[in-house]
C-alpha cells in the first residue's frame, strides 16, 4: 500500500510534459552549426507561411461579394 512514487528522470519528465524526445535525439545527432541551419530553415518556412497567410487575407478582403440576386 505504501508505495513510493519513483522520481522521474529529466527525459521522462520532458516526455510527460509533451516534449518530443525523438526531436531532441535527432538534434543531438547534428553539429551545432547544423542545428542552427535547421533552425533557419524552420524560420524561413514560418515566414513563408506568414506571407502566404497575409496574401490570402488580402485576397479575401478584395474578393467581391456574391453576384447580385444570388444569396449564399
Amino acid at each position: 500500500m505504501n508505495k513510493r512514487k519513483r522520481k522521474m528522470d529529466a527525459v521522462e519528465r520532458a516526455k510527460a510534459y509533451g516534449i518530443d524526445i525523438s526531436l531532441l535525439e535527432s538534434s543531438l545527432a547534428l553539429t551545432p552549426t547544423e542545428r542552427l541551419i535547421r533552425n533557419e530553415g524552420m524560420l524561413a518556412l514560418a515566414r513563408a507561411f506568414a506571407r502566404a497567410r497575409a496574401q490570402k487575407n488580402a485576397t479575401d478582403r478584395g474578393t467581391p461579394g456574391p453576384p447580385v440576386g444570388k444569396r449564399s
Binding site: A10, V11, R13, K15, Y17, I19, I21, L28
Partner: peptide, 17 residues
C-alpha cells in the same frame, strides 16, 4: 520553465550518449 524542462532532458540525453 518550459525551456528548462527541455534543456534538462538534453543534458540527460547527452550524458547517456
Amino acid at each position: 520553465r518550459e525551456h528548462l524542462i527541455e534543456l534538462e532532458a538534453v543534458k540527460k540525453l547527452r550524458s547517456k550518449k
